[in-house]
């Protein structure tokens, strides 16, 4: 564990807490892509179900349980109590176009040809693009609540710091994970436009609004 990875994980954790606060405080999930949330739940289930047979550390176990539990909670809330506040008409990204290629890539690129390894690869590829429905929704509406942008910023910051973590790990322990690196690079790159608006508008006290 190094400081970059720790802060990255904490940002990831914070992003979910921010999302939960937004949903509780406003009693609404408007502006949040239901598709992205379902995809994240799929990502966590595909990758973290190994919590039952692959022990890494108490920290690792706690985080896996936390992410599966909160993602389930968010999807449950969006299906039930907060259903009517969903931005359905804007959440129009075709999820098939990212799930199918992710599955195909996982069948081609994996460390070993086993069910768990292919699921792991699938989850990594899917996570890289799971934000697309959310960014699409943002583009459709052209603006976002400030708290929603904080959620996205924490989520993007988490992956950006993982890039730094990988560089650090490569030099300190010779750690190499080509699949995660490529996917992580794509994942972080997708946030570029968002970050530009976030830094130039939201952090200066203005509303998030696309030009």
């Amino acid at each position: 564990m190094n400081i970059f990875r720790l802060v990255a994980d904490l940002l990831h954790l914070a992003s979910i807490v921010i999302l939960l606060i937004k949903m509780y405080a406003t009693n609404s999930c408007s502006g949040i892509s239901f598709k992205t949330q379902v995809l994240y739940l799929a990502v966590f289930i595909a990758r973290y179900l190994d919590v039952f047979w692959h022990f890494v550390s108490v920290y690792n176990t706690f985080m896996k349980v936390f992410f599966i539990a909160t993602a389930s909670g968010v999807v449950w809330a969006m299906l039930g109590p907060l259903k009517d506040s969903r931005s359905k008409s804007l959440d129009t990204f075709r999820w098939e176009f990212i799930v199918a290629p992710s599955a195909l890539l996982a069948i081609i690129f994996h460390d070993r040809f086993t069910v768990t390894e292919i699921f792991w690869s699938f989850s990594v590829f899917l996570e890289a693009v799971a934000i697309l429905p959310q960014l699409h929704l943002l583009q459709q509406s052209g603006e976002a609540e400030t708290i929603t942008t904080h959620y996205l910023a924490a989520l993007g910051g988490y992956r950006a710091l993982y890039l730094v973590n990988w560089i650090y790990r490569y030099f300190t322990e010779g750690y190499v994970d080509v699949i995660a690196w490529c996917a992580g690079l794509v994942q972080t790159a997708l946030y570029c436009d968002f970050f530009y608006v976030y830094f130039t508008r939201v952090l200066q006290g203005r509303r998030f609004a696309l030009p």
Partner: peptide, 10 residues
Amino acid sequence: KEEDVKHDEL
């Protein structure tokens, strides 16, 4: 063992 340290990240 190599398998034990694999996928130690979240």
